[in-house]
């Protein structure tokens, strides 16, 4: 019973990891850039959510769209005014730029919101929900639901819309896409918008699970084991990677933490990361080998 509880909690947290990793994958697919600022997008999204709910006092059904919109705009601006300027530079420079972006964003957040702990207004009922005989706090349950909805939307978008087709085309071959009339810059910009939006959703969910503070951006580091496990260019990989990492972390934290002192759950994801890189460098579902740094 205890194991099942750890697994369910792992799946919920893993759903949030998957959302965050999804943003990394979208950007990677469109541009082959590994975005080191993903965690900062998550944190900023959560802070914007906090501000619109608390400081502006908006009801959740207005605050949520406003937050997602603003987060999408931040993603867009990052691409338009930072990444695009160096888009055709050497890959390592582009990646360093995303690192710089992460520092810049973190500095901006410190300036506006400071470094103290915020308690995010609970947007889900604080009661528990009964799932497979386990009493699970509602926020965990809703995290899974949100993640599932987002993934279904993306699958639908990529499979059935013309714009989704164009995005897949850009991910596959930019030169060919451009020659067919696809505005590659718009598509790349759009993948940053999407990335900002899913990051913000992840941030709001995380802030509901624990507290909100500048260090939330560290979750961005969790996106790396997830995408390396799943493969940088696979949406499904992000989902499975997120769930696997979430569950292992939760189970390891639950059982091992009592035996091995210290925050074993923090380390487990990176232990898995190392093992996977040794065995299958392109990730479990990735198709191409990721460029070495």
């Amino acid at each position: 019973m205890l194991l099942l509880q750890f697994i369910l909690i792992g799946i919920s947290i893993g759903s949030v990891y998957a959302l965050i990793a999804l943003g990394t994958v979208l950007i990677y697919k469109a541009t082959r850039v590994i975005n080191f600022a993903q965690g900062e997008l998550v944190m900023i999204g959560a802070f914007i959510g906090y501000t619109s709910l608390v400081s502006w006092g908006l009801p959740i059904f207005i605050a949520l769209p406003v937050t997602l919109l603003l987060s999408g705009v931040i993603g867009y601006l990052a691409e338009r005014f930072v990444l695009r300027r160096i888009a055709h530079g050497p890959l390592i420079s582009v990646i360093m730029v995303t690192l710089g972006l992460s520092i810049f964003l973190k500095g901006g957040v410190t300036g506006v919101w400071g470094t103290s702990m915020y308690s995010f207004p609970k947007i889900f009922p604080e009661s528990t929900i009964n799932l497979l005989g386990i009493k699970l706090p509602q926020v965990y349950f809703w995290s899974m639901v949100v993640a599932v909805i987002i993934f279904v939307l993306f699958v639908f978008f990529f499979k059935y819309t013309d714009l989704g087709l164009a995005m897949r085309g850009v991910a596959d071959n930019q030169k060919a896409a451009a020659s067919l009339g696809v505005n590659v810059f718009s598509v790349v910009g759009l993948s940053w918008v999407f990335s900002g939006i899913v990051a913000a959703l992840g941030g709001i969910l995380l802030a509901n699970i624990s507290l909100l503070n500048i260090n939330m951006s560290d979750v961005g580091l969790k996106a790396f084991p997830v995408v390396i496990l799943g493969g940088f260019d696979s949406l499904l990989g992000a989902v499975i990677g997120g769930l696997v990492i979430g569950v292992i972390e939760s189970v390891a934290g639950g059982y091992l933490a009592t035996i091995v002192s210290g925050a074993i759950d923090q380390v487990v994801a990176f232990a898995i990361l190392l093992i996977i890189l040794l065995i299958k460098p392109q990730g479990l579902f990735g198709t191409k080998e990721v460029e070495r740094l």
Binding site: L165, R168, D172, N173, A176, S179, L180, T287
Partner: peptide, 26 residues
């Protein structure tokens, strides 16, 4: 105006139909 490429620049990971559909994108 449209063109083909000397070293076929196709969307290798997409279906034939999707390749053609993207051709009619605009």
């Amino acid at each position: 105006v449209s063109r083909t490429f000397q070293n076929t620049e196709l969307f290798a990971g997409m279906s034939v139909l999707d390749n053609i559909k993207l051709g009619s994108h605009n």
